[in-house]
Computed example of a mutant assay.
Amino acid sequence: MSNDTVKLTAEARTQFGKGAARKIRRDHKIPAVMYGHGAEPVHITLPGHDAMMALKNPNALLTIVLDGDEQMALAKDVQRDPIKPVIEHVDLVIVRKGEKVVVDVPVHVEGEAGPETVVTVDHATLQVEAEATNLPESVTVSVEGLEAGTQILAGAVEMPAGATLVTDAEALVVNITQQISEEALEAELAEAEAEAGIEHEESDAEAAEGAEGEAAEGAEGEAAAEADEAKAEDA
């Protein structure tokens, strides 16, 4: 749990549209909008570097300072550039001390499962409800020594103090299965390729091996034919 807030000094935004947003980003700032608790949406800009560092934690509690007034907020939506490491826009929702909010919290898997097992995480995050000023950074699931066939459901994950699970308790979080052998994997792959109609060209080694086999079969056939002829002559 974390009670720390990150303080960001914002500026009021008066120009809108794509051109204005591009100019804001060129100035190493981030366009944002802050709303909630019945207040009119407030359009602001955030300091680029400081905001990017703060938003590395998706549930960071922010203190937005605007014209000397402070407002606590959480990032509701962070729009990132698909290629460049740039935040294009942030939606901030105002929160109050003591208010409970629902957030997605990462699942952290620790420990080593039993031998020859594969650990699959089906839910990388869980929704939990907690006080805005006391949000968990993650939830921990231990797989230490667990055998194949073990399934850990959301309801079995221990919640941090003050947090309540919102995700369906029957949701599969971690699945532990038997590791497949190389032979079985190759057989499955060959079967799947056969069903898909995929044919592989023979390698030079396989072709040579096949040719040797055919030559040997031919030699055996000739020898058998000669033996039959000899028997017929003796008769």
Rank of each mutant, 00 (worst) to 15 (best):
A208P: 02
E220I: 01
V166E: 13
E137R: 12
G48A: 12
G145I: 08
V101L: 05
D69F: 00
D67F: 03
V93E: 05
H49P: 01
H89R: 07
G162C: 11
H43E: 14
M52E: 15
V101S: 05
N134R: 14
A227Y: 09
Q79H: 07
E206Q: 15
I83L: 14
T63F: 02
T125W: 04
L46F: 13
R22G: 01
P160N: 10
T133Q: 06
I64G: 06
V141M: 08
F16C: 04
T117P: 05
D27P: 01
L92H: 09
A232M: 07
V86F: 06
A190H: 08
Q71E: 09
P58W: 02
G218W: 11
A223N: 02
H37V: 11
A230L: 12
K18Q: 08
G213Y: 02
V33E: 10
P106K: 03
V6G: 06
R26E: 14
E220R: 14
E201S: 15
L135K: 07
A60W: 07
A192E: 15
V105D: 06
G19L: 03
N3Q: 13
V102Y: 07
H200N: 07
A194I: 04
L172D: 08
A232V: 11
D81A: 06
E116Q: 10
Q179D: 04
E88G: 03
Q71V: 13
R25Q: 11
I176N: 09
E88Y: 09
L165T: 10
T45N: 09
I83P: 02
P136A: 06
A225Y: 10
T177V: 13
H123I: 00
N57R: 09
E70F: 03
M72P: 02
G114W: 02
A12R: 14
E116T: 03
K29F: 04
M1Q: 13
V102W: 06
S138E: 13
V105E: 02
T133D: 15
H43R: 15
T140R: 09
G98F: 07
V139R: 03
D81R: 01
D50C: 01
T117E: 03
E233P: 01
A54L: 09
L172A: 14
K97D: 04
G68M: 03
I94G: 06
H49N: 11
G213A: 11
V101T: 11
A196R: 13
M1S: 14
E131Q: 15
R80S: 06
G111S: 02
I152L: 11
V105Y: 07
I30Q: 07
L153S: 15
A161T: 15
R13Y: 08
V119D: 07
T125D: 12
T167N: 03
S181M: 03
G17P: 04
P82T: 07
A208Q: 13
V143I: 14
D4R: 08
E206D: 15
Q151W: 05
G19T: 07
E229C: 00
A211G: 03
E188T: 12
V139Y: 10
A39I: 04
S138M: 12
D104I: 00
E147R: 13
P136E: 01
L66K: 05
A216C: 03
E229G: 00
